[in-house]
Computed example of a mutant assay.
Amino acid sequence: MKAESWIIVSIAIFCALVAPIYWVITYDWTGTTALVMTTLLCVLLGFYLIVVARQIPARPEDRLDGEIIDGAGELGFFPPYSWWPLYCSLAFTAIVLGIVIGWWLFIIGAALGLFTLIGWIFEYYRGVHAH
């Protein structure tokens, strides 16, 4: 992860250097703001990657003596298909439309949103894909 973190930090440094130059040349608020926000995002992501890289042991990809077989094994749990994200997005749509149309729809959307969020969270605790 050290290589990834240094790539992101390099992008942050580049954007930090380009932002004031861009402002002096163009006096454009939009582009300068975008460059500053990109710098801040890259600093945040780079800091996170550096902290995580120090906490985990060296990955086979990061070691010079790493072999392909060192990366073998289970990679993690990858969930199968799920309908709950669709239901959550529909409930969120009802919540947003409730703000525009009326509070009664907001309350219905919030109740449905709570139900669908609980269903999505506890999806793998029961049924076919329980573990």
Rank of each mutant, 00 (worst) to 15 (best):
I25E: 15
I21Y: 11
V43I: 14
A53L: 00
P85K: 08
H129S: 10
L114T: 04
I7M: 09
F77A: 03
L40G: 08
A12G: 01
G113C: 01
W29R: 14
V9E: 08
W23L: 10
W84F: 06
A58T: 08
G102A: 11
L90V: 14
F14N: 06
L90T: 10
Y87A: 14
Y125V: 07
H131Q: 10
L40I: 05
I7K: 08
L17H: 09
I8N: 05
L44C: 13
I118Y: 14
I99G: 10
G98Q: 01
A130H: 05
I25K: 13
L45A: 12
I101M: 13
I8L: 10
P79W: 00
E61G: 03
F78E: 15
G127F: 02
S82C: 03
V52Q: 13
G127K: 02
T32W: 11
I7P: 02
A111L: 11
T33D: 09
Q55T: 13
G71R: 04
I101G: 09
I8C: 09
I108K: 09
L35Q: 01
I56S: 14
T38D: 03
T116E: 11
I118K: 13
F77Q: 02
F77P: 01
I8P: 07
E123W: 06
C15M: 13
A12C: 01
G31W: 05
V36L: 12
V9D: 05
T38F: 11
C88I: 07
T38C: 09
S82P: 01
M1S: 04
A19H: 11
P80R: 05
D28W: 01
L112C: 10
Y125M: 11
F92K: 08
W120Y: 12
A58F: 04
V96W: 14
V96Q: 07
D65P: 00
F106H: 07
I69Q: 11
L35C: 01
R126P: 00
A16W: 03
C42Q: 01
W84H: 06
S5F: 07
Y125L: 09
I107Q: 09
L17M: 10
A34D: 06
G98P: 05
A34F: 07
I50L: 13
L64F: 09
F92H: 03
G46V: 00
D28E: 09
A34T: 07
I118N: 08
G46R: 00
I13M: 05
F92D: 06
I68W: 10
I121K: 12
E67W: 04
T116S: 14
P60T: 00
V96K: 05
I25D: 11
T33L: 14
F14M: 11
T93G: 14
G127Q: 02
Y124W: 12
